[in-house]
Design a protein around this nucleic acid. Structure first.
Lengths: 341, 341
DNA sequence: TTGAAAGCGCTAACAT
DNA sequence: ATGTTAGCGCTTTCAA
């Protein structure tokens, strides 16, 4: 032990933590000794005493997918700042597994838990009466008392619609995922609202609900253009769908954005950037969402718990599929919209 | 405390852990009481005493990307089995951050550390003289003593070449990423070996090294077909490149697989499945790689440390881009090759 | 200004 | 078959 600096164990503790009144010389001696011995205070013992471990559990409802990852990273980032470590628990949608992980986390005395995972509907609370605060990220608890942090799908849809209106499009269609997904409906509503403010209606007369796939994008684009050949813009509920649409447009001889402008949703880098042309898309700011969830959890741990649903603003990432002016080489992308508060 | 079951604290401990000799009735009483009170033994105290925390750190050299994620999941899976919890540390390629995280992990008394992250070249060891074992996953330490677990890129390339030969192709080209990536070179070598065994040489005469992008795939496909119009198969170093190639082939009127068969690398689901036609591709089994790394770490913790480089076998995932017989509807995918031992 | 001692929750050895 | 005690490594009184 660092007490080989010739001081008592209590004094060493004070020196290391800057507590108590010590002679500067003593303090220096202890620090030097600790450094020389590569001493690291035992966080286990510390936590045991403090009754607080400075760790949190990160639990995925569904498995970690493309959407949970940025959330995860954001949360880890925000927590790491505050010197809080993260336990990773991949539940894989198995309730029994979830229960097991929950017990483990509690036995490790985590200070709080973040539950994440894309869900169609609000999920049952992870457990009632947990001794630590819980925040739901990208998923929502059925219990309205619980704190859930969600992307602002409606706002994102609005941004897309607004943008297409702003660049002068008049026949704007919308192709998206299954209607049973709340996010499909919300994105559609947002877009419809933006159009309505410009006295426009959806080209083709209705939202084309379908699947989250490129294939559906191609198929739906074909049917939309048949129904409404003068369509000059399409907003898609995902970047994948948008890619399918872009392929169909190109293969049927329409130019993007000149003939038809295109906006996607997700700002999924590989998809958006390798689209031809690169895709303008709504970025739901999932990493920021993760950070917000983490900060909310920290606040709850400190006692300032509120509960309810909190939403993180999206922003628009403009690339060439909507910017006729930008030639392929002018392609520095621009970001509009407010970052989340 | 559960001692409200009317027994001493020591007895309770024995009952809960199944140690010592207790009357069945006593044991039952304690368990009932513990259950009623929702008692969870404090892992912090336990670890403090045991000198072993049953936790490990998972440290990303680069940030978590598409490639680290499966590794991460595999590791978490294998460790969770053994009741070992995982601390997530996203280093983001920042050496100072790495150092900070390392100190934190050590202060938390992790039993071991997994370092992961795609790298072009072997990386410097995370630190010499760590008090706990370290395993490198998907990245390699410069120190040959350290244990590194890597995908078998050469074997994967071999599988691809072998498959194309097996379906009767004779003019097989290879388009891949930058030559400075060891994995590009290894995949190429594997394929070349397989061709050589059938007395074939690469169509076009050489490997087309370039970038990991769809754009490069399109470009390189054009140049390969110009140089060698009779090319009847192309093996690509990534699924993204393969998609670009597929697009080019379709747009220049060549049928896949009838005219040109196509094999990718990564088995990146979205890419491979939304390719037209769905892409046969080499699966490097990254999740299994994560599991192997975790098991090696556990072994090292138990004392059975070996060191050196361990490799995880790839396997081939056949879809329609190489199976002329399978119509679009017969598309149940088939997996060949051995899973990693 | 420093040292000694108690105690965080637990387990293992020893005592009863 | 059960209870008692020491001690894991630390911080925090309190005493010197």
């Amino acid at each position: 032990m660092a007490q080989r600096a010739g001081v008592s164990i209590g004094t060493a503790s004070k020196a290391l933590n800057g507590r108590g009144n010590l002679r500067a010389e003593t303090r220096a001696r202890v620090l030097r000794a600790a450094d020389a011995l590569g001493f690291e205070p035992n966080a286990l013992a510390r936590s045991l005493l403090a009754g607080r471990s400075f760790t949190v559990g990160l639990l995925t409802a569904d498995s970690f997918g493309r959407f949970s990852i940025p959330v995860l990273l954001g949360a880890e980032d925000a927590l790491g700042e505050g010197r809080v470590s993260v336990f990773l628990c991949d539940v894989r949608g198995d309730p029994e597994r979830e229960h097991r992980y929950l017990r483990t986390l509690l036995s490790r005395r985590v200070d709080g838990i973040i539950v994440t995972g894309r869900r169609v509907d609000p999920r049952p609370p992870v457990s009632k009466d947990l001794p630590v605060p819980v925040v739901y990220a990208m998923t929502q608890s059925e219990d309205r008392q619980d704190l859930s942090v969600l992307p602002d799908d409606e706002g994102g849809g609005y941004l897309a619609g607004e943008h297409l209106v702003a660049i002068g499009r008049l026949k704007i269609g919308h192709i998206t995922g299954p209607e049973r997904f709340a996010c499909s409906r919300r994105r559609a509503n947002g877009a419809i609202t933006a159009l309505a403010e410009a006295d426009l209606q959806l080209a083709g007369g209705e939202v084309l609900f379908g699947e989250w796939s490129e294939g559906w994008g191609r198929e739906a684009a074909a049917s939309l253009l048949e129904r409404e050949p003068a369509t000059d813009a399409i907003f898609c509920g995902s970047d994948q769908i948008a890619r399918g649409v872009a392929d169909h447009l190109r293969e049927t001889g329409r130019r993007v954005p000149d003939d038809v402008a295109l906006v996607g949703f997700d700002n999924w880098d590989v998809m958006a950037e390798s689209c031809r042309p690169p895709l303008s898309t709504v970025d739901p700011n999932l990493t920021e969402l993760g950070r917000v969830a983490a900060r909310e959890l920290l606040a709850a741990i400190e006692g300032g718990s509120t509960g309810g649903v909190r939403t993180v603003a999206a922003n628009l990432c403009v690339r060439q599929s909507t910017s006729a002016l930008a030639g392929p080489l002018a392609g520095a992308e621009t970001s509009l919209g407010l970052p989340a508060g």
